[in-house]
């Protein structure tokens, strides 16, 4: 299921990630041929940000170097690492795929998003046992405080086979205290994550 701004915007019929991701790509008429070459982690991160940016249009509001991307998960790029291992495990049939190998790092997903949205700000992919709102909040607050970025795409993008989940949100540095603007606190972020689970 795909939820954007608390609204369910798409429900796929397949539990298979390859089919589900392809159906999202088609449903939202995304046009980016390189998507099909990405590994599953990058596809999941890419689609999450694609739908997020569609709702917020933050990439038009900020310069590329004012936007950061901070993601985390617990499986790193293990899903693709296994795929790569399959191509090298048999010494008599040893044909490692370059296009698989290049995705054997989780931060490549950030690179794909950065290329798509022309984002040049801080980018980091952290591997942690579980979703850690305290860490995300303190890390991004430091980036804001030190005026490294003004806006940040952040969240949890986890995939291992057909077991996957992604919760991505946009944080903007603002002095406004209007109603409707959620405070960027660990409790708020945890609530968003729990709601999506």
């Amino acid at each position: 299921m795909v939820i954007v701004d608390n609204k369910s915007v798409y429900s796929g019929t397949s539990a298979d990630f390859g089919e589900f991701s392809a159906s999202i790509y088609k449903h939202f008429t995304i046009s980016y041929p390189k998507f099909h070459k990405m590994d599953n982690l990058s596809k999941l991160a890419f689609l999450s940000v694609e739908l997020l940016s569609g709702s917020k249009k933050s990439d038009h509001k900020y310069k590329g170097d004012e936007i950061g991307i901070i993601l985390m998960n617990s499986s790193s790029s293990l899903d693709t690492d296994r795929h790569h291992q399959d191509t090298i495990i048999d010494r008599s049939n040893y044909f490692p795929s370059p296009s698989v190998f290049v995705y054997t790092l989780p931060n490549v997903a950030i690179g794909e998003i950065s290329i798509r949205h022309k984002i040049f700000g801080e980018g980091n992919f952290f591997v942690m046992e579980k979703f850690n709102p305290q860490f995300i909040v303190s890390y991004i607050q430091q980036l804001f405080y030190n005026e490294i970025i003004k806006c940040c795409i952040a969240g949890w993008v986890e995939i291992d086979g057909n077991d996957y989940e992604s919760v991505v949100f946009l944080i903007e540095k603002t002095d406004r205290t209007d109603k409707g603007i959620a405070n960027f606190e660990p409790g708020t972020i945890q609530k968003i994550y729990n709601k999506m689970k």
Partner: peptide, 13 residues
């Protein structure tokens, strides 16, 4: 360039 490597692997495989 990654595609070039992939095509090289294709020819070999």
């Amino acid at each position: 360039s990654i595609d070039a490597l992939e095509l090289t692997v294709l020819l070999e495989k």
